[in-house]
Amino acid sequence: MRRWLFAPRTGGFLVFLVLAVALPFVLPNAFFLDVAILALFNASICVGLNLLIGYAGQISLGHAGFLGIGAYASAILTGTFGWPAPLALAAGAAASGLLAFAVARPILRLRGHYLAMATLGLGVIVSIVANTERELTGGPDGMAVEPLSFAGFVVEGEAAWYWLALVLLAATVWLTINLVDSPLGRGLRAVHGSEVAARACGVDTDRYKVIAFTVSAVYASVVGSLGAHYVGFITPADAGFMRSVEYVTMVVLGGMASTFGAVVGAVILTALPQLLSSFQDYEHLVFGLILMLTMIFLPRGVVPSCAALFRRRRAP
């Protein structure tokens, strides 16, 4: 029991669960709960994205595109065509998955800045389509999204959404922690460590990269659908370049190749702009500054840097 409790895998997960379950009871009002829900959704996306960036070592600057595909699929299919929400969500996920799968092989042959450019282009194209196809998407003004309902049951109110988002994140974290420590997860990390060595060890690196890319894309799409239902409104900016950058920043700021780092990064960067909004016009200035300072002084990310500090304290 003790070992189970103190193993980073299980123990860390437990701490996270306790904190998250206690949170709604200490938050002063609905505004904070709203921020918390958004943070949970973002954290789910980042945990999935971290699989690709942190573990497999492949950058994506276009992930919001997949999020947008999910969000718009849900909005359009439920709103305009009257599909049931789960079916719309699945359709969006399938579309994202197919797109990701189709482009993954040629794109993931690229490295570094070339990969950054290709993924960036993919995301930007999605947001331009959303901007342009006014009749379907409402263009730059965005469109309303119906509440999430299924078989007569409607998810309503902040509390319900909080628990939904939490269950989703908890499941994601749990599955990811398992995956990272499995043969498949080690294969992914080996791709990051040295692609040639991974291949020489029998890892089908191309396939693994495709899997990581597709899984994280499908994942972003699903969360995009849910998030759209929750917020009730989407715009092309939700699929845009800056949004993609935000997700990557969350992952890197929290700490690459650390599942809890991705969660922490998402929470910080979701809450920060809300807190900074009291600075009004200075918001962007302060945000950019914080981003640069964190990366200069904690280049490995918040969680790994703090963990290293903690270890150094304990071991004299």
């Binding site: 920043t249 945000f287 500054l289 640069m292 990366m295 200069i296």
Partner: peptide, 25 residues
């Protein structure tokens, strides 16, 4: 951060771009 990873440097320059926009605004 000269010796930082590519991703770190990407994020830093992106931070700078947000900062410049904020400053001008």
């Amino acid at each position: 951060t000269r010796n930082g990873s590519v991703v770190t440097l990407i994020i830093i320059t992106i931070g700078a771009s947000i900062f410049f926009r904020g400053l001008v605004q």
